[in-house]
């Protein structure tokens, strides 16, 4: 499944990084602790988080994650979108909380 597929199914907002919408998703990782993601997320994972600052893109790019989903209607900080565009890391948004969104994504990716 590609990032653009889950955008439609989960009705996600696209804030930036649209160059990466055809990235293939290998799985997901839900965490708000940056060194946890750095240590344990896998290449191609979708990262679900409430963090909205620039280091999120730095980590997503260094770890070659598929995309980032900001939860609870959070909006990314203004200075991250250019970075996301350059790195081709889609920054997506959902109104839902981590629990619901993670559950839905899990079902989609393991079905």
């Amino acid at each position: 499944m590609q990032v653009q597929d889950i955008i439609k199914i989960l009705n996600l907002e696209v804030f930036g990084g649209s160059g990466g919408l055809n990235r293939e998703i290998s799985g997901g990782y839900t965490s708000d602790l940056l060194s946890d993601v750095m240590g344990h997320a896998e290449c191609g994972n979708i990262w679900i988080t409430l963090q909205t600052h620039k280091n999120v893109i730095a980590i997503a790019s260094l770890k070659e994650l598929a995309a980032v989903i900001l939860i609870k209607g959070n909006i990314p900080d203004a200075d991250i979108l250019e970075h996301a565009e350059n790195e081709g890391i889609p920054v997506l948004g959902s109104k839902e909380e981590a629990f619901e969104l993670t559950g839905k994504l899990f079902n989609l990716l393991t079905r």
Binding site: L33, L34, S35, D36, M38, G39, H53, N55
Partner: peptide
């Protein structure tokens, strides 16, 4: 608040 400070960084380096 930014999500740093879990005390996992040096462990990540060691691993």
């Amino acid at each position: 608040e930014m999500g740093f400070g879990a005390g996992m960084g040096l462990q990540n380096i060691k691993n």
